[in-house]
């Protein structure tokens, strides 16, 4: 029932908004990879123990997503269907290696903090998912916009988690102390369980907001039908 209505809802949006803008915004809000599609949970839970890590991870993923989407869209008529997954993985792995080198060149501390999760971007479902579901079927411009939207949506989601976890777990934001010496840090928040707690809390909030919006958007007679059901 709800899926039907939301699909109808998005169709209305598609008509009323310019196409490219919708492609871009979709990844940030409506199809947010973390809060709506629940993709890429591994880095979301693992590297969001501080804002800097979350931001670095988000930007790294954004870069890889953007480059791979662009290249996949450019080569979409050149890659035969039978070898497409292998081709996408090679493309993605290339850009992950690039990011890996660049982060090492920028800061070794950051590189050590992110650990194996930089290399693991290669298996992040968002990136392969966008290559397969969007870039391989659309023009380069659209693929770029899609990558930007999804990447920014992913980064924002990581920041949402990283912010809460760093503030509660360490009393700091971006390393700047917020509450002074006397703040009792909730160390569980920067430990792995904290990632699950905070993600759960955000999902709760998002679903609650979405449900409320859907209820409001429903016309009275639809609402009536739903209550009857």
């Amino acid at each position: 029932m709800t899926t039907n209505t939301s699909a109808a809802h998005s169709e209305v949006k598609l008509k009323s908004q310019p196409d490219s803008m919708d492609t871009f915004l979709r990844g940030i809000w409506q199809d947010n990879p973390v809060f709506v599609m629940l993709l890429g949970m591994c880095p979301v839970l693992a590297v969001t123990n501080s804002v800097v890590n979350a931001l670095a991870m988000g930007i790294a993923s954004l870069f890889v997503l953007f480059c791979s989407n662009t290249l996949v869209a450019l080569l979409r008529n050149f890659i035969p269907k039978q070898v497409r997954i292998a081709s996408y993985i090679v493309i993605i792995a290339t850009f992950v290696t690039v990011v890996d080198y660049v982060i090492q060149a920028i800061s070794l501390d950051l590189y050590n903090a992110l650990g194996a999760f930089i290399q693991l971007i290669v298996v992040n479902c968002i990136i392969l998912g966008r290559a397969e579901a969007f870039a391989s079927k659309n023009k380069v411009g659209a693929a770029m916009l899609d990558a930007l939207g999804m990447g920014i949506g992913f980064t924002l989601a990581l920041l949402c988690l990283g912010g809460v976890r760093e503030i509660l777990g360490n009393g700091t934001f971006l390393g700047i102390s917020l509450f002074g010496e006397n703040f009792q840090a909730w160390s569980v928040m920067i430990l792995p369980p904290g990632g699950f707690f905070v993600l759960g809390a955000w999902l709760l909030l998002f679903n609650w907001l979405k449900e409320r919006k859907d209820m409001k958007a429903l016309s009275p007679d639809l609402q009536l039908a739903e209550t009857k059901n």
């Binding site: 890659i79 035969p80 090679v90 493309i91 290696t97």
Partner: peptide, 16 residues
Amino acid sequence: ALGGIATIAGVIIVFV
């Protein structure tokens, strides 16, 4: 296709 992509990949990685 695969060879072409691998070549592009190789060039990018070596350059970086």
